[in-house]
Amino acid sequence: METRSELLRYEETARRVRKSVLDMIHKTRSPHIGPSFSVVEILVALYFRHLNTSSGNDRDRFILSKGHACPALYAVLHEKGFISREELDGFAVNGGTLEQHPVRDPGRAIEASTGSLGHGLSIAAGMALAARVDRGEYRVYVLLSDGELNEGSVWEAVMFAGHHRLHNLIALVDYNRMQALGRTRDIIGLEPLGEKWEAFGWHVQEVDGHDFGALFDALDSLSGRKPNVLIMHTVKGKGVSFMENDVLWHYRSPDDNEYERALKELLT
């Protein structure tokens, strides 16, 4: 259990990550600031506390299946030293380094190219299967969006992992209740979401996706018998009041005035 001051350090890292994301997106007029902000805490929790991020074969694997949130991943990988400042500055510019969806690059700790929704969980299941057959020590983590759960292929993988009891597989669902064009409940309702995963043989934990203490507790109580899913209750656009819970910020990039206002909120 972390002390209050330790938790504050993670929160400080999350704040720096959000600022990086804001800078990257504002500078390049890129989309997806809302879905990037909603996954900051889980990425920090994974990379700064939970994952074995060594470069060997026994490293834990992480796949950002909701690839459009990669500004947050790039910012976290920068904080961890996998991506340099120059590389980060090459985000979404002509002749640059990093696209608006991740491209596999083991040197930068990016395990798979993603961006088309509904692929990540199957890839992660294949990795988990390989780990099991090889008696590998590593676990495979995959971060999905809630809108992504509309994809049928996700449920093919949910069934497969449940059937084969891939307990070294951990799905993380960013349940911010908004997808590209509106609220999930208005487009394709997902409830009862926990029961759905449970019915397919998964160990389900529901957790506040912005509370480091809660995330650490959940990541420390994974099942060793079933595949695991953390349904993380999150807020799209988390951290900047006028972006929170507003579907506009799935695609909108802040103008200069909005950038200044957002920056002020993140710094105070």
Binding site: S122, I123, A125, G126, A128, D134, G136, E156, A157
Partner: peptide, 14 residues
């Protein structure tokens, strides 16, 4: 679709 994804995951692990 899941078969191809699983194949990719396996192959990414050698």
């Amino acid at each position: 679709a899941n078969m191809i994804g699983i194949a990719a995951g396996l192959s990414l692990c050698g």
